[in-house]
Design a protein around this nucleic acid. Structure first.
Lengths: 326, 326
DNA sequence: CTGTACCCGGTAGCTCCGCTTCACGGTCAC
DNA sequence: GTGACCGTGAAGCGGAGCTACCGGGTACAG
């Protein structure tokens, strides 16, 4: 394995054109540089320098290696620059997770705005189901998670996570235009016996919320279609193959032939942002300071990263509050 | 300045997810890894790890830095890979120089072929005049140089350079179609008194070759137009503003209205590839071995790089020998 | 041609860095 | 509860890397 420090020495020689110049730049003696280069030659198995007058020049192998060295040094300089700005600037990786339809309605605009304002921010995104994503967030594999929580079945989050409500919206019943209930102003859930339902896969929040809402009025939904994509569900509804529950964020774009009707009792869905709250981490608030904070010269405990805070702020600013939710 | 070795430690922790795993991968004890990370935290000024159960996870600063570390390690691995293949494969930078029209006729095809066959070869190209480029080659700022040498004025190259002839071609006189000599089968240089000449800038090979060729028959050319681009010279010739000497490589594409006529005495031009010949370097073949070869454990003296040899071979294969030169 | 200044490479010696060993507190699983 | 595992810290040792110095060689001025 190559010694990375020695690559820095080689790069200095390539830049300054001489051992003496490199030594001056690195604040060491020429002898030290020469020794490092000799070792680099031995461990790389190639001559890197050849005498040229009273100075040296790089061989082909030396130039090849110096090219890598230049990139390594540039990476190191970039890292230092990022570290210097890390406390103040919005920088570095931001690992986002999303669940369900909240992704499409909220994230693209916010990510566009964030990356425009903070070019050194590197967001990544994974979507999935709440049951799988929440543990990822708690374990530290995600920085920020967008989840949905249905009012009749509030999402349970483990301790140590902070949340903010990004949107509250009504849930409507989607019907085909030819459906007998399509012209109602409002539909009672109790009137929905015998309907065929489409919803998201079993285990997801919309599925469980649908089942619980109907059981609350003494009905058991006949769920015949479970598909992840709202667009597919709407296509089924448009052909009168099923009815479905839709939060407002999922209603556009809708294909022709679909009607959305409020339901009674009123159903609401929230979209939440969740992240680890450093202050409350751990099962119990341990009375002793954590081990890594013991030493006097230790650095302070990390707080929520500026990147997470900035993203939550940007998401909050979107104000996707349903007009009918007022 | 960040310690590059410590970045490798951080990367190992990021990959293996624990101090113990990183320690095993690096073949050191967990304590050693922990100490290196603590130093990295101190010198970076940020917490990089935080406790998480009985293991650790990276903070935002840690992930940011680990991203750089991953790239640094990847560069180092790439460098090692290139070094391992350097003796056998065509790899690394190839700094080409070109003089005059030889560039356009020969290089593009050869470079396309070379980079297709050897994707890890990184050619660069600079063009200029022989008077400036030859010292660059001798000094080691170029690996390979394409130069032209006119038979009546052979190019003088310093010792230590090897050459290969890539093409030999006749030089013709370019005339406008309406020129009185345009219908001749052959033009005697001695008949060209009083002509207005276009050629390359003073000091270049074509300029000096023109002057010497005419002086050899007792004439002094009236050079009124000196422009670098052959296309511009041809445009002047096409409008009967001047006559010019053109090697065959410079004759296409020619604008309408230009005739090319052989000259007497016959003029020839060669295109040469020149590179440093390691065996003959230095002014005199020094009787003692060079200083850098002294040590017994020293590596062998570098020979011409495979990249240079491959490029010379590819250039030789082009076989741009003039049909009329046979 | 000669003297001088400079550059590179090698050697001896010293300093400091980094690793290992050992020990301890905390966490998780049985 | 208890044992296994993880991460961290202190002490000590070995080696890596630096400096100081010297010698060989080159470029440049006179």
């Amino acid at each position: 394995m190559l010694n990375l420090e020695r690559l820095r020495v080689l790069h200095a020689v390539a830049v300054h054109g001489s051992v003496a110049g490199a030594a001056a730049a690195l604040h060491v003696t020429p002898s030290g540089v020469s020794q490092q280069l000799a070792k680099l030659e031995r461990e790389s198995g190639h001559r890197l320098l050849e005498p040229h007058g009273r100075t040296v020049r790089l061989t082909h192998a030396g130039r090849t290696l110096a090219g890598y060295a230049a990139r390594v040094v540039a990476e190191a300089a970039g890292a230092e620059s990022d570290l210097a700005d890390l406390s103040a600037e919005i920088i570095g990786p931001l690992r986002l997770g999303g669940v369900g339809s909240s992704l499409r309605a909220l994230l693209p605009d916010v990510l566009a705005e964030l990356t425009r304002a903070h070019p050194r921010l590197v967001p990544t995104l994974v979507d999935g189901e709440a049951v799988g994503m929440v543990p990822l967030l708690a374990r530290g594999d995600l920085d920020l998670l967008l989840v949905e929580s249905w009012a009749n079945r509030p999402l349970a989050l483990p301790a140590g996570l902070a949340t903010r409500t990004l949107a509250v919206e009504d849930v409507h019943l989607a019907l085909g235009e030819g459906h007998p209930l399509a012209d109602r102003e409002c539909v009672d859930l109790g009137d929905l016996d015998g309907q065929v339902w489409a919803t998201c896969p079993a285990g997801t929040e919309p599925y469980e919320a649908l089942v619980q809402a109907l059981r609350a009025v003494g009905r058991e939904p006949e769920i015949r279609y479970t598909v992840t994509e709202f667009a597919t569900q709407l296509a089924l509804v448009a052909r009168d193959l099923a009815v479905a529950l839709f939060p407002e964020m999922g209603q556009s774009p809708a294909p022709p032939g679909v009607r959305f009707v409020p339901v009674r009792p009123r159903m609401r869905r929230e979209v939440l942002a969740a992240w680890r709250a450093p202050g409350l981490a751990g099962r119990r608030p341990s009375p002793l300071p954590a081990a890594r904070d013991g030493g006097a010269r230790r650095l302070p405990r990390p707080t929520a990263s500026p990147a997470v805070r900035a993203c939550v702020e940007a998401l909050s600013r979107v104000e996707w509050s349903s007009p009918s939710a007022l």
